[in-house]
Amino acid sequence: MKLRNALVMIVAVVLTLSVGVATAQEMTKEQWQQEMNTLTQTRNDLQAKLKALDASISSLTSESNKLDGDYQSSLDALYALVGSDREKADAYRSELDAPEAKAADLMRLSDADLMARSSEVTDLDSKVKELWGNKLSLIPEFWDRLTALDTKVKSLKETLTKQVKVYTVGTWSKDRDCLWNISKKPDIYDNAWLWPRIWQGNRDQIKDPDIIHTGQMLKIPQGKEMNDAEKAAAKKYYHKVAARAAAAPAANPAEPAKK
C-alpha cells in the first residue's frame, strides 16, 4: 500500500515538473515582439548599409575605369617621347628576355666551361650594346634591365680575362708569328691545330685568320680542346682555303702560314 502511494506521488511530481518546464521554454508574446523589433531595426540598418555600399562600388568602378584610360594615355606619352609605341615596347621587352636568360646561363658555368664558351660572352656583349642603341633603353624599365645585364656581362668578361693568357705578336721575319705557329709554341698549346681557338678568342681584333699584325695582344683561351664554335669556324676556314686552292692550282698550298 505504501509503495502504491509513493508511486502515485512520484508520477504526480514528474507530471507537474514537465508542465512547468514546458511553460518556461516557450516564448512569450512580449519576447516575440521585442525580438521582432530588434530584427526589424537590424534589417533596416543592413538595407541602408547595402545601399550605401552599392553606391560606393558603382563610383569606385567608374573611377577605376577612368584610371585605366589615364594609365594607357600616360604609357603612350612615355613611349612617344622616344618615338615608339606600345607594340614596339612589347617587342623590345621580349627581345631583352633572351640575353637575360643567356647571361644567367653563362653566370652558372664554371670558369673552365665559361672559357670554352667565351665566344658566347662576346656575342652577348654585342647584343647588349645593340639593345642600348635603341632609344627605348632610355625608359627606366628597360634601362634598369640593361644595366643589370651590363653588370653581368662585365663580370663574365672579368672572369674570362683572369683566365686568359696574353701573347704579343712578334714580327714575321724574326719570330715567324702566325696563328698556326703561335699555337704550336710549347708555352701556348703545343699543338698547331688548335690555332682556331686563338682566332675565335680574338674575333674582335682578327677578322681574317691569315692576317695578324705585329704588336697585337692576343688572348690565349685556356684549355686544349676546341669547342663547337671553334671547330665550325675552322671547318669553314679550311673549306674556303680548299676552294681558293682549287680555283688557283698554281699557288703554293702547303703553308698554312700567316694565319
Binding site: 507530471l15 507537474t16 508542465v19 512547468g20 511553460t23 516557450e26 516564448m27 512569450t28 508574446k29 516575440w32
Partner: peptide, 10 residues
C-alpha cells in the same frame, strides 16, 4: 500547472 501553461500568452 496545466492551467498556467494554457493561459500563458505565447
Amino acid at each position: 500547472s496545466l492551467f498556467l501553461y494554457g493561459c500563458s500568452s505565447s
